[in-house]
C-alpha cells in the first residue's frame, strides 16, 4: 500500500496544534504562575533597588523555568492515556522522528510564545535592554533543550503512578548545563566579555539533546507500551 509521509507530518502537526489550542488553560496557567512569581519576588526581597538589580535576571529565569517544568512532564501522558501513543507506534514513520516533531511542536506552540513575556517582565524588573535581547535568544535556544529533557523524563515516567513527583526531580539535574551556559552568556554581556563561547556551548548541549532525546524517549515509550 502506498504510504504518504507528507500526510503523516501534516496529521501530527495538526493533532498537536489543535490539542494545545483546545487545552489553552495549560498555557494560561503557565502565564499566571509566572506573573505570580515576578510580583511576589520583589515583595520578599524588599524595596532596595540595588538588591533587585542584582537578582532581577535570575527572577525572570526562575519564573520561566518553574512555570515550564509542570507542563514538561505532560508531553506524553494524555496521548498515553487515550491510546494515541499506540497509534504513533503503529505509524510507518519512525517513533524517534514522531517524538522529535512532537517536541518541536510543543516548543513552538507552547514555549516560544512565552518569550513574548520576557521583555514585559524584564522591563517591570528594570533589566537593561541589551540583557533583555540576550535573554530572549538564550531562552529560545535553551527552552528547546528543556523540551528535549522534558521528553526524556516524561517518557521515562509514563508507566509510573506518581510521575508528578519524579519528573521535576529528573528534569532539574539534567537541565543544569543549560542554566550554567545560559547564565554564562548573560554574565559575559554584563561584564563586557564576548558572550559567544557560552552561547556556542549552549547550542552544543541542545544539539546533543536533539540526538539523544528522541532515541531515549522512543525506547522508553516502547517499554511503557509493551510492558
Amino acid at each position: 500500500m502506498k504510504i504518504n509521509f507528507k500526510n503523516i507530518l501534516i496529521a501530527l502537526v495538526e493533532k498537536e496544534f489543535k490539542s494545545y489550542l483546545r487545552s489553552i488553560n495549560n498555557f494560561i496557567n503557565m502565564i499566571v504562575f509566572m506573573i505570580a512569581i515576578i510580583i511576589l519576588f520583589p515583595l520578599t526581597v524588599g524595596p532596595s533597588e540595588e538588591k533587585l538589580t542584582l537578582v532581577s535576571n535570575a527572577i525572570v529565569w526562575i519564573a520561566l523555568i518553574v512555570s515550564i517544568i509542570p507542563t514538561l512532564d505532560k508531553i506524553y501522558i494524555s496521548d498515553y492515556k487515550n491510546g494515541w501513543l499506540e497509534q504513533y507506534y503503529y505509524s510507518p514513520l519512525l517513533l524517534e522522528i514522531i517524538i522529535l516533531i512532537k517536541c518541536f511542536v510543543f516548543w513552538f506552540f507552547l514555549i516560544i510564545p512565552l518569550t513574548i513575556f520576557i521583555p514585559i517582565f524584564s522591563i517591570l524588573l528594570n533589566i537593561p535592554l541589551l540583557i533583555i535581547f540576550w535573554n530572549i535568544i538564550i531562552f529560545a535556544i535553551g527552552s528547546l533543550g528543556f523540551c528535549l529533557i522534558g521528553s526524556i523524563c516524561s517518557s521515562l515516567t509514563l508507566g509510573t503512578k506518581s510521575n508528578n513527583l519524579i519528573s521535576p526531580l529528573l528534569i532539574l539535574p539534567l537541565a543544569i548545563p543549560i542554566f550554567i551556559f545560559g547564565n554564562g552568556v548573560v554574565e559575559a554581556v554584563k561584564s563586557n566579555y564576548d558572550p559567544l563561547p557560552n552561547l556556542y556551548l549552549l547550542i552544543t548541549v541542545c544539539l546533543i539533546l536533539l540526538i539523544i532525546s528522541p532515541l531515549i524517549s522512543a525506547y522508553s515509550i516502547k517499554i511503557a507500551l509493551t510492558k
Partner: peptide, 21 residues
C-alpha cells in the same frame, strides 16, 4: 483510542494521516 480534545472527524482524519493514508 480517540483524543477527547478533538472532534470525531478530526480524530479519524489524523488517524488516517498517521497511517500515511
Amino acid at each position: 483510542s480517540l483524543s477527547d480534545e478533538l472532534t470525531i472527524e478530526e480524530n479519524l482524519k489524523i488517524w488516517c494521516g498517521l497511517k500515511g493514508w
